[in-house]
Design a protein around this nucleic acid. Structure first.
Lengths: 199, 199, 199, 199
DNA sequence: TGGTAATCGAGACGGTACGTCTGGTCTTAGG
DNA sequence: CCTAAGACCAGACGTACCGTCTCGATTACCA
């Protein structure tokens, strides 16, 4: 991605964090995840590619998970807040955008890695849980706007629906099915929104 | 005549798989996962606890993931097929049972490990994807029964709803929130089933 | 060496040693040693190539060393007993023949393997020591003939000279220098026989 | 402030070889060879006894043979250069000293191991061959001194005689007969030096 | 003539060691 | 006090052999 052929040593710049090192490390980590997935991701590999010392990494990121999260948040530019005036359409756009975002760039691989890491590292689990809650609030805005419009009853739990949609997306990502046909996703959203009970 | 120096050794029973070894290995693996989670799970550790040789494990389970799946399927006795005559109630029971099942026994930890492993091992990803599809069919039966009763329209995609519910459960499990208040789960199912659009 | 393309299984011929198996095993062992040296030699490899069961090998040869010795003695056709009437010439012929014999065929590799094995297996050490003593007697005949002719004093220790020559040959073999120029070997023998003290 | 959980650990001393580790590894290796011979010698065992990581060993000694040679040269204090004024006496002292040196200390076992290893590892073979050539030059000095005195003709090949004596000693060592009666060794040297041809 | 006994190939068993990789800690030398 | 570098111990990885065991079959020998 970022070409990295600096022939010169990247020495200390004194008693402070060297932004060039941070940059090189995050870039290297992202490239490794994009190229080889979670299996290829190790602190050793990152240090090797970034031409950094392992302690430099450990100094700033206490765990593999912290580095992963930093990489994800740095890359992440996904911020779909569709507002067509129709909640179903908005949510369908959101879901389709999220899965394409994961399927097309390296971010899908990175986020999968974070989830994987969270299954054995409690700190990563906590971070992931917090991150998910935050995203729920964010996504919930779509629904809250519909509530303000009167399209959705006030007693609807926006967070719970946001969680439902996110859970669906996670399931696809984690089983290697992030690349889903749009119609299917639209159908899924339609069922969530319209319900299935015969009127 | 046969000297009995090591009476507890589990020798070969000829050119065929020894069920006692298989048993010991699966049991050891399950115990390790229950006690220490995925972080403590290694082929070495399993071999040590099962008093088996590493090659014996590799002979029958080509990868860590294969062993994990075997352990999960062996333990798994969760087979809720509630049939109260009301689809929402059935699905709520299903979701609550699944999450309790994961929260209370070791199976939650084991399944989390499988998902984690699937993020770096393509074979595990495939196995997980297949397993999920299979479970979807199984869970879909609840909805198909409702369709036969006329409670749910025939054009509803049962598999997609099953996936939605499963995705929700995965999300809770993977963020360490398998232990959820039942009312919340009921509310989630209610929204999925009844929809959120104002009539 | 012996072509071995028997498509049929080599079954038991009753409660007795099957000569076809013995043959196949010794042939396979010799071929492996000739091709890959001691490093490639393992009971597994022999069993594989001979299409024999490991227990069949262990039944008849209690140790790797026993098999090695059997292979060596089966191959060994070196039996130089030159008798030109001149002891120096006889011994030079003997030494040159021995080293060519080792350098040209597989027997050099096999004998090196036996010596190597003898360094960690006491049984092999004993067998090697006995074998060496036996060969000493054999080689000593050359000198004893010279004593009978009156060319060599009666008090000369024939066995000790035989050992000296054998030791020289071993040294060359074990350092990978079995392929020595004949003149050098003649010079070595000349010094041993004629002495070095100024008359 | 520095937690002292494992005060006896031998940590890194920076980006450079830690002499304490080298010391511990060589000592452990020597002890294992002295106690159990070549059969007990494995990198695992050395690492275990030295409380070192295997990679630390592989970092500095690329092969088992390299470690063996280092151990031998470190132990080796045998440096007999007798100078009595009589070449036969000098050589007899040399041979007797060498075999006692091998028979009494661990060095015999170590050197046997090196020879054994050289039979399957080409690098070890080369190292052994070079080492033997070097020792030949060293031992040859005894003979060259005699040549200067005029006791031995100038045309005598000192290296070849040194090789003869060394070969004799190797033969004894490798067959487990390092512990030889001195008279026998004296007789052997006498024959080599005085020749056997009737005047 | 039928039962016993030893053989055969095959291959699984619990183990040990291999040589490599990574984890996380520590120290150095230089800015 | 930071930086790159890299050594340190620890231990998991997946593979190759070790020597032992049991299997089912195949025969020779003996009752």
């Amino acid at each position: 991605m970022a070409s990295n052929k600096a022939p010169e040593r990247r020495a200390s710049i004194g008693a402070q964090r060297n932004p060039a090192s941070e940059e090189a490390i995050l870039t290297a980590a992202a490239e490794i995840l994009a190229e080889g997935g979670f299996g290829a991701f190790s602190i050793e590999a990152v240090a090797r590619r970034a031409k950094a010392g392992k302690p430099t990494i450990y100094r700033w990121w206490p765990s593999k998970a912290a580095l992963l999260l930093d990489v994800y948040q740095r890359q992440k530019t996904f911020d779909a807040q569709p507002d067509t005036g129709d909640v179903e359409r908005d949510l369908a756009i959101f879901l389709k955008s999220l899965l394409s975002f994961w399927a097309e760039g390296p971010q899908g691989n990175i986020f999968r890695s974070i989830i994987a890491e969270a299954q054995s590292d409690p700190a990563a689990e906590k971070a992931l849980s917090d991150y998910a809650a935050d995203r729920r609030i964010h996504t919930g805005e779509i629904i809250r706007r519909a509530q303000e419009r009167g399209q959705v009853p006030a007693e609807t739990d926006a967070s719970l629906l946001a969680e439902t949609i996110a859970g669906f997306a996670w399931g696809r990502l984690l089983t290697g099915n992030a690349n889903s046909p749009p119609e299917e996703l639209e159908r899924a959203v339609h069922q969530m929104v319209a319900g299935i009970i015969r009127p």
